[in-house]
Every structure is written in C-alpha cells, then in structure tokens.
C-alpha cells in the first residue's frame, strides 16, 4: 500500500473511478488524525494535571478530619497551633493570610488606580514609554528578591520606627503591596482603555473637568474591571509564600497587632512541610492549610467570573 498522495499525473490517465478517489483517505486525512491526536493528548495532559492536583490536595487535606477526627469547627476557629501536641487551631494563619491580603490590596489599589489613570488619561505617551517598562520590571522581579529586600530594608526600618523585632504583618503588607501593585495596575489600565472613547468625549464636551470625567464617567464604567484587577492582586497576595514567609516572623499565634511576628497559611506550609512525616497528624494538618489555599484560589477565580458576567450583562442592556 505504498502510495504517494501526489497522483495528479496518474489521475489524468485513470480518470474513471472518481468516487473511490474522492472518498479514500490521503496523507492529509492521516495528518489530521495525527494532529488531532497530538493536540487532544496535550490538552488531556493539562486536564489530568489539574484534576489530579485538585484530587490529591483535597484528599490529603481532608485526612485531618476523616482520619484524625479533628472537628472542622475546631480547626477553623481554634487559636492554638501545635500539631505535634495535637493542637491544630488554624485561625492564626487564616487571620494572618487575610490580614496581609486585605492590607496589601487596600494600600496598593489607590497607587495602582492612580498610576493607571496617569497612563491612560494624563500622559499616555509617558505611560507607554516609562511606566509600561516599570510595571513589567516590577512583575519580573522574583519573589525571593522581594523577600530579601523586605528582610534587608523593610524589617530593619520597621524595627527602628515602631520597635520590636520588625517582623510582622505590617512588613509583609509592605512587601506584598509592591508585589501586587503591577498586577492591579496593568489590569486596571486594560479596563480603563476599554471604556468607550465617546463616554469621555461626551463628558468633556459637557464642560466637565478632567478629574470629573475620570472620577464620574471613566472610573465608574470601569469599576467591574478594576474590581477584577484588585481580586487578581489579592489572589496573588494570598498565595505568595516566600516573600511573606521571610518577613512575617512565622509565629503561629493570633496576631494581636500589626508589628509582632505572625504567620500565614503559606508561611506555615513552607516552614513546616519538610519537618513532618507523611501520614501523621502534623503533616495532615499542614495539608489542610494547603487545602484552604486551594479553595481560596478557586474562590477568587469564581469571584472574577461572577464580576465578569455581571459586567457583561450591564453592557448588553
């Protein structure tokens, strides 16, 4: 059955059986099967990775409750974290994670929105030439470098200003603020650019000042986009591990203030997972923390979708 597909010459001579010729599989059909096979396989690999990631982490994470019979309520509300003594109150880490995430988002959002307004409304030219590279560089700096600078600059600074060790939520907030700033800014820029030009022109034509136009027309119609940007920033902050772990002090106790050592889910995981034995309660408890991280990441994801859907509906009306 060795036949080349290129039969143009033969066709001229044996031109009677067109039906067979137009129905038989050729190199192109085989290529398409192959191509389909390869690309379906590749997408299948990705789906398999995601599915097994969700499955493994979930099954590990719930072992604390199903095998060690710790009550979920105690896990979520308990404030004592000493897994080797059987105390696994995860509240300190949960509070720590949410505290740094919200604090970082609250500090970063005005900066991000301001920068985005500058890039889109005040000086698009400087925005493109100067700020775009600035944002890209800030994204590009690895998180360990942020952590190192936090350790070398922010922590000593805090120590000298407010006293104590310098480690704590406030230092983590500072570091995360810079880390989520580029994320929020670049997405806000996108959503400001998506505001139809005539909105702005109509407002300016009515005699509104630039700030009135920006604050009442542009920011308002870009709100869903900005919200999405902030949530993406929060997701990044919530999941950031090393930079936070390096500056927060890693004390698994309820944070009483912003300037004493605390810990987050991620920081507890990075420091703890290597020291525990697979299958034991201390190990399972850490996987439960990982499960919270996973669920929160899914939650942020869903939130972004809901906002996107709402925004779409609004536009359609």
């Amino acid at each position: 059955m060795e036949q080349t597909n290129f039969q143009l010459k033969q066709q001229k001579t044996q031109s009677n059986d067109w039906s067979a010729r137009l129905h038989h599989a050729t190199r192109a059909t085989r290529e398409d099967w192959l191509g389909k096979g390869i690309s379906y396989l590749c997408i299948g690999v990705i789906i398999l990775v995601v599915a097994s990631m969700l499955w493994f982490i979930t099954s590990k994470g719930i072992a604390t409750f199903t095998q060690n019979h710790v009550s979920l309520g105690k896990f979520l509300t308990g404030t004592d974290w000493a897994p080797d003594q059987g105390k696994i109150g995860a509240l300190p880490m949960i509070v720590g994670s949410f505290a740094v995430t919200f604090a970082a988002a609250i500090v970063a959002t005005p900066f991000a929105v301001g920068t985005a307004i500058f890039m889109t409304e005040i000086s698009p030219n400087k925005g493109r030439k100067l700020l775009q590279p600035v944002i890209e560089l800030l994204v590009g700096i690895p998180s360990v470098v942020y952590g190192f600078i936090g350790l070398a600059v922010v922590v000593p600074f805090m120590r000298s200003v407010v006293g104590g060790s310098g480690f704590g939520i406030i230092s983590a907030t500072f570091v995360l603020f810079v880390m989520v700033l580029p994320t929020i800014t670049s997405m806000t820029v996108d959503s400001l650019r998506a505001v139809p030009r005539h909105f702005k022109e109509a407002s300016l034509a009515l005699g509104a000042t630039r700030w009135q136009t920006v604050s009442r027309v542009i920011l308002r119609s870009a709100t869903p986009g900005i919200l999405t940007a902030v949530i993406f920033g929060m997701a990044r902050a919530f999941g950031e591990a090393l930079a936070v772990q390096m500056v927060i002090g890693n004390a698994a106790i309820m944070p009483k203030n912003l300037i004493s050592p605390a810990s987050t889910l991620t920081s507890q995981l990075t420091t703890g997972i290597g020291d525990t034995i697979d299958g034991t309660l201390p190990n399972n408890a850490l996987w439960s923390l990982a499960l919270i991280l996973l669920l929160m990441s899914l939650f942020f994801n869903a939130l972004v979708r809901v906002i996107a859907k709402r925004g779409q509906l609004k536009h359609e009306r």
């Binding site: 038989h24 599989a25 050729t26």
Partner: peptide, 14 residues
C-alpha cells in the same frame, strides 16, 4: 464527476 461531494464521507482535502 458524478460524485456528491457534499457527503460527509468525502475527503475534503482531495
């Protein structure tokens, strides 16, 4: 050529 080439079984690349 007396073939209905709108049939799904036909080799569209040919």
């Amino acid at each position: 050529h007396q073939v209905d080439i709108n049939e799904p079984t036909v080799n569209i690349y040919e």
